Simulated scan of single mutants.
Amino acid sequence: MAVNPSADQLVGILRDTVVALVRRDGPDLSARQLGVFLTCYLQDGAHTVRGLAAELNVSKPAITRALDRLGELDLARRKVDPMDRRSVLVQRTLKGTAFLRDLRGIMSEAASGTKKSGSHESARKVANG
């Protein structure tokens, strides 16, 4: 039977994950950027600026700024919806998929409490391209 972690353990996992993300080489994401990224990669379906703004309860310009940064890092890209040219779709990228895989690994290490030297090397590679 699986044991659910306590709130304190979850906060510790979050802390260890965030610390690992900011310590690795390359840029780190703000909480908003990470929220947009995770929403796009963990929830199926088409994502639009309008839909992300509603889902995260933030303004469309805030989503646009987050997507600008994710686009600079090649973690997501925007494309005009061919069915409705007024709408902008958010697309996943190979680099974004790799970042998510690395993030899962970092979180797994944080959850298990293991600290392996060099274990975040692939996250550094993804961040630096």
Rank of each mutant, 00 (worst) to 15 (best):
R92K: 15
L100R: 12
A46R: 14
G35T: 09
V49S: 00
T39V: 09
V36F: 03
H120F: 11
V22G: 01
L42V: 09
P61H: 07
Q43P: 00
V36G: 05
T39F: 11
R15K: 05
G35D: 13
L42A: 02
R65T: 09
L89I: 11
P5H: 10
R86E: 13
R101A: 15
F99A: 07
A127T: 08
F37S: 04
E55V: 09
V49G: 00
E109V: 00
R92L: 12
L89C: 03
V49Q: 07
R24V: 15
Q9G: 02
R50D: 07
R23C: 07
A66H: 01
L100W: 10
T114K: 15
V19N: 11
P61W: 10
V19Y: 06
A7I: 14
K95L: 11
S6D: 08
I106E: 12
G113Q: 04
V19M: 10
T39Q: 14
A110F: 06
L34Y: 05
D16C: 02
L42D: 04
I106V: 14
R85N: 09
F37C: 06
Q91H: 15
F37Y: 10
L73F: 13
K95V: 10
V22H: 15
G129T: 11
Q43M: 13
S87T: 09
L89V: 06
L14S: 09
D102I: 04
S122F: 14
S117Q: 14
E55K: 10
R104K: 06
R69F: 08
A111T: 07
Q91A: 04
P61R: 08
A110C: 04
A2M: 14
V18G: 03
L70G: 05
D74M: 05
R124S: 12
A62W: 03
A46S: 08
V11T: 13
S122K: 10
G45S: 01
R92Q: 13
E109W: 03
G105K: 06
L42R: 15
L103M: 14
V22M: 08
L52G: 03
N128G: 02
A31E: 13
S117Y: 09
L52E: 01
D84G: 06
G105N: 09
A98D: 09
R101G: 12
